[in-house]
Design a protein around this nucleic acid. Sequence first.
DNA 1: CTAATACCATACACAGCTGTATGGAGATTC
DNA 2: GAATCTCCATACAGCTGTGTATGGTATTAG
Lengths: 180, 180
Amino acid sequence: MAMSDQLSAQDWLDQGLKTLARRGFSALKAEPLAKAMGVSRGSFYWHFRDISAFHAAILKAWREVAAEAIIAGVESASCDADPLAMLLQRVFSERLALERAVRSWAAFDAAARAAVQAIDRRRLDYVEGLIRARGVAADVAQARALILYWAFLGYALSDRPLAKAQREAVVAELLHIASL
Amino acid sequence: MAMSDQLSAQDWLDQGLKTLARRGFSALKAEPLAKAMGVSRGSFYWHFRDISAFHAAILKAWREVAAEAIIAGVESASCDADPLAMLLQRVFSERLALERAVRSWAAFDAAARAAVQAIDRRRLDYVEGLIRARGVAADVAQARALILYWAFLGYALSDRPLAKAQREAVVAELLHIASL
DNA sequence: CTAATACCATACACAGCTGTATGGAGATTC
DNA sequence: GAATCTCCATACAGCTGTGTATGGTATTAG
């Protein structure tokens, strides 16, 4: 029969991502995770060689969901709507706890920093393309993409959910920045 | 005679801030710090009640230097120059390792978060005032101050020093955003 | 039915950090 | 010059986390 009480590596990664978003990198340890999942560390060390392998797997999993979120932004702006407007609306209304956790981690960890930088490049290229599609010169579009993306990072880091009116004002300003 | 080989609490704080900027919050522990200073933890526990008291003292010290940096930005724009331009020039050419470390710390620590939020409010108010002094309406100035400050945070977090040309382009764009 | 395999519990040795208790050396005060 | 105070070293107990070794249970293969 299917043993549903058996754990897979993905189960550990799911718990790891959830814990990372809630309590940060410092909570990404074998024993607390095992206690939270109701098993012993024997399971952990069966699925992962050691802690750093688990960390690497967590980062790989995050890279995939982060890249997925990019194309999700593209998809949501499918038809006639302004893609940049849709993207900003979505991004500045989410909670971004996982984003914040990974970047906090990346501040002083080389592996996490590499993952973050890879995602940054993809997102920056995408935003820069959206701005250039609005008829902005290449060099100006690069600077403005940086500013928009930094603003997103600052918002994600501060973790203060905006009031609805304030959010719309900010998004309107950002769109205004992108267009001219 | 003056015992220059004696340590004061301030010596520990200086070493703590340096270590925080270089290796992050996770390196803010008594034993590694003592080893780095060539003494034993006996000195640490004489000057500080426990680790959390040391952490609180570090945060207090950071609050003071962070607030100091604000008025330093004001002072540097003393005479006829544009104060906001001077501020942006300075801010986007610094390394900001300590800023990055404290914010990484604050992502999942209540005490650090309180310190960061206090500094954020002061800086935001100051930037918003500079923007309003340029003849921008209050509500718009608030949104633009948020964007400019977030951009600063994003830059501080990414920790990629900009090339000179790129920095000047970004600062020019930010000034353009502030003015209209 | 037996053997192999997947998955996990338990136990052990080890390391790093905390906090405290105790004592000691150097300076200071009277 | 004895006592006191300041500052630090040492030693100890305790906790938490790591990694491994070993064994057990349940499922699957033959």
